[in-house]
């Protein structure tokens, strides 16, 4: 309890407890985390810790990004910025919970673009998450997908893969992920026939392609780079719009004539209805965080391409991508929900 930032003593508040055992208790709240008051919003933000919720388990790339940003923000805001992992339903659970919290700037969420742009193609309508209840504060970075072939498959280029059409098995990182969408659309456009084998996440999919259990798989570059460098897998294509700075020799799908720009983007968002001054302060602190040397080298180490755009740009970009993916899957008659 020593390093917790200057904490203003909150007003005494009367709390009605349920149950017959105690009727009413008068308490000087001094650090509880329940029943957060929206009353303090605006005046002198922040009045307490700013929590960033992550819809994925600790240790994954989304979690690491949240923690890297949180460090910088804590320094700038002068309060602690804890990262809370609330995994479930691809992040939909966390997003729904944060969207329902008071819009006082103390509750933020780190969003994955795929949850908004791709997952709705695979799940029922009432589970699809949209940006309507959220206010996006800033875009952070872009994590590119690469199509990898196992060393034993003998594929050196995408053309080799096309020759093998018919008995290709390809690993994806799960239903409703960028990995699934990118491969499904690419193979449809290139008229490659194959069977999708969904894995639970990037790491088992990568393991499967390294061990030649599937011939190809698409995973995020950050996870795959060391295996590429070791020669255990061969990168065939990148799904970014432009060549990835960390893989300058690997062609993009777009270059090869396939219209499948798929990347994972991350952004910070808050519940809708943030007071203007709070919003400005938060954006300022995010800008400060991503300008730090530590954060820059974090991006570099994790092979993340900075994609630092404003909240409005994020909303526009993600909405456009969602429409594009919808159109692509309609055009090629692809259903992400059928494996």
């Amino acid at each position: 309890m020593t390093t917790l930032a200057p904490r203003t003593l909150r007003t005494r508040r009367v709390l009605l407890g349920a149950g017959a055992a105690f009727a009413a208790l008068t308490l000087a709240a001094c650090g509880g985390n329940v029943a957060g008051g929206a009353d303090a919003a605006g005046a002198d933000f922040p009045t307490g810790p700013v929590t960033i919720t992550v819809g994925q388990d600790a240790g994954g790339s989304t979690d690491l990004i949240a923690r890297a940003v949180a460090d910088g923000m804590a320094e700038d805001l002068g309060v602690s910025v804890p990262v809370v992992n609330r995994a479930g339903a691809n992040g939909a659970l966390a997003t729904e919970e944060v969207a329902a919290k008071p819009a006082d700037g103390h509750e933020l969420i780190l969003l994955n673009a795929s949850l908004i742009t791709i997952t709705p193609l695979a799940v029922s309508d009432d589970e699809a998450v949209s940006l309507d209840d959220l206010e996006v504060l800033a875009g952070l970075s872009q994590d590119d997908y690469v199509l990898l072939a196992s060393a034993d498959s003998g594929f050196e280029t995408f053309d080799d893969l096309k020759q093998a059409s018919g008995d290709v098995t390809y690993g994806t990182t799960g239903v409703g992920t960028g990995s699934q969408l990118a491969q499904a659309v690419l193979f449809a456009q290139a008229e490659v026939e194959g069977t999708a084998v969904p894995f639970d996440s990037g790491s088992p999919a990568l393991t499967a392609v390294v061990g030649d259990q599937v011939q190809v798989a698409t995973v995020q570059l950050g996870e795959a780079k060391s295996q590429i460098d070791a020669g255990n897998v061969v990168p065939l294509l990148a799904f970014s719009a432009e060549r990835n700075q960390f893989l300058p020799d690997v062609p993009t799908a777009v270059e090869e004539g396939y219209d499948v720009p798929v990347s994972q983007y991350r952004a910070v968002a808050a519940p809708k209805g943030l007071p203007e001054d709070v919003r400005t302060r938060l954006v300022e602190s995010i800008d400060a965080a991503i300008a730090t040397e530590t954060y820059r080298s974090f991006n570099e180490n994790n092979l993340l391409t900075p994609h630092e755009i404003s909240g409005e740009e994020v909303t526009a970009e993600w909405t456009e991508l969602a429409e594009k993916y919808q159109a692509l899957t309609d055009e090629y008659d692809i259903s992400l929900a059928e494996g």
Binding site: G59, S203, G222, K225, Q227, D229, A230, N302
Partner: peptide, 27 residues
């Protein structure tokens, strides 16, 4: 030896090494 995290805890160690600027992998 392979850079493959076998469980959730190993995934975190993987992350911890990345933060330190070391990529766990075959090398």
């Amino acid at each position: 030896t392979l850079g493959i995290p076998a469980n959730a805890t190993m995934a975190l160690m993987f992350g911890a090494l990345l933060i330190q600027g070391i990529t766990p992998g075959p090398q």
